[in-house]
Amino acid sequence: MDLDLRKLRYFVAVADKLHFGRAADELHIAQPVLSRQIRALEKDLGTPLLTRDSHGVSLTDAGRQLLTDAGPLLASAHAARRRVTAAARGSRRLMVGFRAGVAVAPAVQLFAARHPDVPVDVRRIEWDDQAPMLLDGRIDVGYVRMPIDETGLRVAPLYAEPRVAVLPTGHRLAGKEEATEADLAGEPLVWHADTSTQPTRHPHPDAGYPARGVDETLEHVAAGRGISFLARSATVFYSHPDVTYVPVPDLAPDQVCLAVAASRNSPVVDDFFTAAQAAAGITAECGNYEMWQRGGEAAAKHG
């Protein structure tokens, strides 16, 4: 049995809304048509996916599992369409996504030596669009920061980066050479996701101001709404007159990885993967953290 992607998209819309009428409006189809398609999908799979009663619509266990699996499947199909369209136009470009504080230039320079005919575009990504942009083909390769949902991805570690505490300039620890996790325990935390993903072993209450990127983080901290933790590269790439950085040596390091969709089979993508790993290896070999901050001088020298 082949899974019908159109029916799968219809199911995801209903599962997200838990309402057939609203899902039908979003899909621009009639509600009876949507209901028939969902029943046909349930027949194809041989199991109920949704429970419909006077209280509304809810997912069965099978429905919850299908919703989990549907995202990567639909994103992979969308990415395939993007690649086919690009191939039909004769374009041969590589789109590389990167998180704040990650310098892509060293790998781009090494890659260009082997593929001078393949332009490399770069695009800034945030924590919440790392996996989606890889899965749906908006980026071919991504420099990501953990944690990330690795479902449908191939992820390889590149390097670990020490973290610093981000503090308002009036903070009691501002100006210190370093601090410990215990020094900061209990402080409200401005964080980019669920606070369970915070890199410290000591508890921090949620400050209630989720920050999507570094700029938002700095603004919230500067306003005195809480503290935060960032990779050490933030001290080079980002500054704010009302924010100071203090190293926290015993804080869990930030892990930078390279990621690509597991369904993506491309020699060009594989070659960029190799170049990125080589560039990261040069950084470690030179023992020079500032190498990748400066944009790849050492990589060019070693290339």
Rank of each mutant, 00 (worst) to 15 (best):
G71F: 13
R145H: 09
A284L: 10
Q31K: 13
R163D: 09
W292T: 15
A284D: 00
D206M: 06
Q65V: 00
P253G: 08
H19R: 07
A182Q: 12
S35D: 07
E161T: 14
I227F: 04
A30Q: 15
G287R: 03
V104K: 02
Q130D: 04
G56E: 06
S35C: 05
G170I: 11
N288H: 12
D44R: 03
A23W: 05
G213H: 08
D69W: 10
E219C: 07
T85C: 12
L67V: 12
R124S: 14
G175L: 08
H204K: 04
R82G: 02
V96G: 04
V164S: 05
C286K: 09
E150G: 11
A182R: 12
A275H: 03
R163Q: 05
S263W: 05
V108T: 07
S228D: 06
V33L: 12
G21L: 06
D242E: 09
F273T: 14
D128S: 07
A77V: 06
I282Q: 14
T180Q: 02
L67F: 13
L184N: 03
V221C: 02
H192F: 11
L251H: 01
A207G: 08
P116T: 09
F98N: 11
A223G: 07
D16H: 13
G101N: 09
W127Y: 09
R9T: 00
D215K: 11
Q277P: 07
D121A: 15
A30N: 06
R201I: 12
D242M: 13
F229M: 02
L189W: 06
A284W: 07
D25T: 14
R154E: 10
P157V: 08
Q109Y: 11
P188T: 00
V144N: 03
R52H: 11
W292R: 15
F272A: 00
G226N: 02
R82L: 01
M1H: 14
E126T: 09
G101V: 12
V102K: 04
E290V: 15
H28W: 15
G213I: 04
T169K: 11
A79N: 03
A15G: 02
T68P: 04
E297G: 02
F273D: 11
A298P: 08
L66K: 04
E150F: 08
G281A: 10
N288Q: 08
Y289M: 13
P168R: 10
E178A: 14
A77C: 10
Q31L: 01
L184E: 10
V12W: 07
Q130N: 05
G137A: 02
G226Y: 00
T197Q: 02
L173H: 15
G101W: 15
Y289H: 14
S239W: 04
M291K: 13
Y209S: 07
E126Q: 11
R294S: 14
A231E: 05
A77Y: 04
P72K: 02
V268Y: 05
F98P: 03
H302M: 13
T197D: 06
V102W: 00
D129Y: 04
V164G: 05
P132G: 01
G281P: 04
Y143D: 10
A284N: 03
G213R: 11
P205A: 03
N288K: 13
A62M: 07
D128K: 03
G226T: 07
A280P: 01
A40K: 15
T274S: 15
L230T: 00
G137V: 00
R163G: 09
Y10I: 06
L218K: 01
E161Q: 15
Q65H: 08
L41I: 06
